[in-house]
Nucleic acid binder design. Structure first.
Length: 545
DNA sequence: TGCAGGGTCT
């Protein structure tokens, strides 16, 4: 665009075709402000817009959120005599629907001299955007012609409203289906977590493209089925008729991050580099997250440093990653670099910052950043930020101050906050606040036995065995069993899940023998187990391995 | 001029 601009600037008086070419170039590069700027320059230089100009400018108003300017451009449309142009009318409907001004959209639609199938489509899509699927369907029935795009939009409208039965009925009624129709209905089932139907449809599809695979893989990811994400990705590579793209890689990297699958993550990194996604900011961000969640913070920093284009999420991800790794000083230093780079932080940036302060025990700095977030950046603290503050105070041993913060919060504390407090109470062996935290946790999460276990551990640490027994009874009365916590480890080309005293692995015997050997070795080196129960020693050792 | 997927969060 900068070269195009240089050439454009040399033209003494550009004609409307040249201006339209520039406008389109800006719009294609998401430079909506430049579109508006050039449009206003054109007006001052008496270059008269034509029917190609307005759709580009109106769309930029919508995409660039300059809605007030949209109204002005509408006036220019009328003044210029383009009110009856079907292309201009269609874009105006899109503009007003995007602003959720369905009345204004409908007025334009009603005044159009000639309504083609595209005009009907954007009007129907407008109703769907305004969550009025009934009106959308009514118009759909009234439309004089229905092409495949209109059918697809109506089907996806039902899906967006969560009406899968209606969506499926309409899908089955379609006179023709293209790959996008199939992907749309597939996405509906994937989003609703109905993988049985989704997988069956995937197999039945007459043709698949990269979106079809991404719908399946993304559906698994959104529903927390990370092993299935990896399985489908491997199958995609083996089948070989469709290549993964940036969206595929991002979903797979995110699954690797959740599973700790570092080797596969590294493989995806190499694949991304050699398939043209080296400078892709989505992929870069996902790589930073994957490396930091898989414990390889150096690689995360390396990806960050090599990224030519960084956005807000890039900074948030690396700051959060460093904080998570206890490298609070680096996290804070990057926050200042971010400020120097003129990237405006958001609420999520501050979660990383506060987390960094917590892990360094920097209570005063944390408080100052919290205040600065409000005063200097006009970011209203959300419950997550109060959670960070409670965690900051509590982990530093300032339990009374933490409880005070909970009381002074403008919103009701949630289970995460009380659990953070309870966790800190264990470190500092404070029964009084632990009991207070548990009382509140029972109110908020009566079915979560993990809370009882936490307090029970505190009693155990203090040797209060009667209280431990009392809690065990209370826990049994809830009728719910605690789900055992589990860990994941990447072995060869797969990921193995295990929990304490787990015997599911085919090589269980060998694993426990090795563990025993290691325990002996550690003890002979002077390691003193801290837990009182023998089983617990194994738990602690296996998790630290 | 109209339709699909993805990244950060106590």
């Amino acid at each position: 665009m900068s070269r195009a601009h240089t050439v454009f600037d040399r033209v003494f008086k550009p004609n409307i075709a040249l201006c339209n070419a520039m406008l389109k170039g800006y719009a294609q590069n998401d430079a909506y402000k430049q579109v508006m700027h050039l449009f206003s320059q054109m007006k001052s230089r008496d270059i008269v817009p034509n029917c190609f100009t307005f759709p580009i400018v109106l769309k930029s108003c919508l995409e660039g959120n300059s809605w007030r300017e949209g109204d002005e451009v509408h006036c220019d449309v009328i003044k210029g005599g383009f009110g009856a142009n079907p292309f201009v009318g269609t874009t105006l409907i899109e503009l007003y629907s995007g602003e959720r001004l369905i009345g204004a959209a409908y007025k334009v639609f009603g005044e159009m001299a000639e309504r083609n199938v595209v005009a009907w489509t954007v009007m129907i899509n407008g109703c769907i955007l305004c969550q009025n699927v009934v009106s959308a369907r009514r118009l759909f029935e009234l439309a004089p012609t229905r092409d495949i795009v209109l059918w697809n939009i109506m089907v996806s409208g039902y899906i967006e409203m969560g009406e899968m039965v209606e969506a499926r009925k309409l899908f089955d009624l379609m006179p023709n289906k293209d790959v996008m129709s199939w992907n749309t209905i597939l996405n509906g089932y994937a989003t609703n977590g109905d993988f049985e139907v989704c997988e069956r449809l995937f197999e039945e599809m007459p043709k698949r493209n990269v979106f079809s695979w991404n719908v399946l893989i993304g559906g698994y990811g959104r529903n927390g089925c990370f092993f299935d994400v990896l399985g489908a990705f491997k199958r995609m590579l083996i089948d070989g008729d469709v290549c993964p793209n940036d969206a595929t890689l991002v979903t797979v990297l995110s699954a690797c991050a959740r599973l700790g699958a570092l080797d596969l993550g590294k493989w995806v990194h190499v694949y991304a580099k050699s398939n043209g996604y080296k400078d892709n900011v989505f992929v870069g961000n996902a790589l930073i997250d994957m490396y930091s969640k898989c414990g390889s913070i150096e690689n995360a920093v390396d990806v960050f440093n090599r990224m030519g284009r960084k956005d807000l999420i890039t900074w948030n991800t690396i700051i959060g990653g460093l904080a998570m790794h206890g490298r609070g000083a680096d996290a804070l230093s990057l926050f200042h670099q971010m400020n120097n780079a003129k990237v405006q932080p958001d609420g999520i940036t501050f979660i990383g910052i506060l987390c960094a302060c917590t892990h360094m025990g920097l209570v005063k700095n944390g408080m100052a950043y919290f205040q600065s977030m409000v005063d200097d950046y006009s970011i209203e603290p959300q419950i997550e930020h109060y959670g960070c503050m409670v965690d900051l105070l509590a982990r530093a041993g300032l339990l009374a101050e933490a409880v005070d913060m909970v009381k002074r919060m403008p919103m009701e504390a949630d289970a995460v906050i009380w659990a953070a407090l309870l966790g800190a109470c264990r470190i500092y062996k404070n029964v009084e606040f632990a009991e207070l935290a548990l009382q509140n946790l029972i109110k908020l999460e009566p079915k979560n036995p993990a809370n009882f276990v936490m307090l029970s551990n505190i009693y155990g640490d203090l040797g209060k065995w009667k209280d431990v027994a009392r809690l065990k009874v209370a826990m049994r009365d809830t009728g719910f069993k605690k789900l055992p916590g589990c860990s994941l480890i990447e072995v060869k080309d797969g990921v193995v899940e295990f929990h304490s005293l787990d015997e599911r692995h085919p090589e269980t015997k060998k694993i426990y023998e090795t563990l025993k050997g290691l325990t002996k070795l550690l003890t002979s080196c002077g390691y003193k187990p801290t837990a009182a129960v023998e089983d617990k020693q194994e738990v602690e050792i296996s998790s630290s391995l």
